[in-house]
Design a protein around this nucleic acid. Structure first.
Lengths: 220, 220
DNA sequence: TAGATTGTTAATCGATTAACAATC
DNA sequence: TAGATTGTTAATCGATTAACAATC
């Protein structure tokens, strides 16, 4: 069963469509046009149709897309038909907040393990989960870990990533502000909060420069 | 003083280069080649040179780039020469963690205000900051807010964004899993944690499919 | 001068968009 | 049949990359 490759830009948008479809389904809507889906997802209709065409032809001309069918299809292609266990490593402010984050469990990503190396933290509980020492990360009795969430200080992030990979983790969400290297079969996504603020800063500065007449809007 | 437009993809990488340069400077290194910068930033050297060329010609052929000079230049172009006050709206798990996040203040983004609408929270303190009612968001005595961080439930995110914009905020970092609409002069970046996990799930599934022989690596 | 490395060019690639024939 | 809307094509745009002349 060969599944065609989906472009990266499309993969990044499928979760957005999926969330919109869940909302629509909750509201009782059974059909949606590319126009409406685009509006709710904050993109244009051509992009929606192009994106969905990579999944196959699941719309009906003159009618639109069946909400439930499309939901099912996106869920399946994203690999969300089964739950994925999440382990959080580094239980500081952010790690603790994520451990408490109900949204993960609700979306099929139950947090099943918390790790740290601080003996003062190991053994204590967060949201019903005991914090374990990172040395036990490979322990089979914890069950398989599908995704590792890295919320350690940057100085140890690479070392921790190595240990996660050694324990069989093939997907990492990295919050540490450092680029980590992993083998080809491991996927990393990064969330860099300072980067986000800095990019906002850039655009803010540009807008101000434009407003100040650097690129006069209509004045002549 | 006209500053040339920098491509979006480049703007997204400049903060990464900046972080690497700070590390190099801390280590006492005064010069860096595109090759080394690329290695540390996790990209290739051609991209580094192309990106930096948008800032102007700040390298020296045969030598490389002066670390301090490049740092200064990127800092300036990103608008990081002055601090930007951050307000966090929605003090739940995540908002509280971000309020405690020292990395923001250290990078020039001091958190100066916390807002919520829950009377049980209003008046209490987090990391030395009193939580205020969102109704006071425009209050001049709080000082200007440069960036608003949205950590509210999705159902109220649009409404809260409207109030931030009305209070003069022109940059928003949105953690609520919903697309928010804002006027043209306002910039929004989103951080969608569930989306990140779902995209990881997709790649994980693809890698497994490939490993299972869907795309045989070398077997014939 | 010889070696190193930038800055720029040009080719390539992937993503976006508009337009419209196909078709419900 | 008439109206609506998809799925696909083709044009355009922006990003990436390799290659190399310029030059320190």
């Amino acid at each position: 069963m060969t599944t065609r490759r989906i472009p990266d830009a499309t993969v990044d948008r499928l979760p957005v469509y999926l969330r919109v479809l869940l909302d629509l389904a909750a509201g009782g809507q059974t059909t949606v046009s590319s126009e409406q889906l685009a509006e709710l997802a904050g993109v244009n209709a051509a992009k929606v149709r192009k994106d969905l065409s990579h999944l196959g032809s699941y719309g009906t001309r003159g009618v639109g897309y069946e909400v439930d069918y499309l939901r099912f299809e996106i869920t399946s292609r994203l690999g969300l038909s089964h739950e994925s266990a999440v382990a959080i490593v580094g239980i500081g402010n952010l790690g603790r907040a994520l451990a408490n984050h109900a949204g993960f469990r609700d979306r099929g990503f139950p947090v099943t393990a918390l790790f740290d190396v601080d003996d003062a933290k190991v053994g204590t509980e967060v949201d019903g989960h005991v914090i374990r020492h990172l040395d036990t990360v490979g322990d089979p009795e914890l069950g398989p870990i599908s995704i590792g969430v890295l919320t350690t200080p940057p100085a140890v992030a690479q070392e921790v990533a190595n240990r996660l990979v050694a324990a069989g983790v093939t997907a990492i969400l990295n919050f540490a502000p450092i680029v980590i290297a992993v083998p080809d079969h491991v996927t990393v996504r990064k969330v860099d909060l300072t980067l986000e603020l800095q990019v906002l800063s850039y655009h803010q500065q540009r807008n101000e420069a434009d407003a100040a007449g650097d690129t006069p809007p209509m004045a002549g």
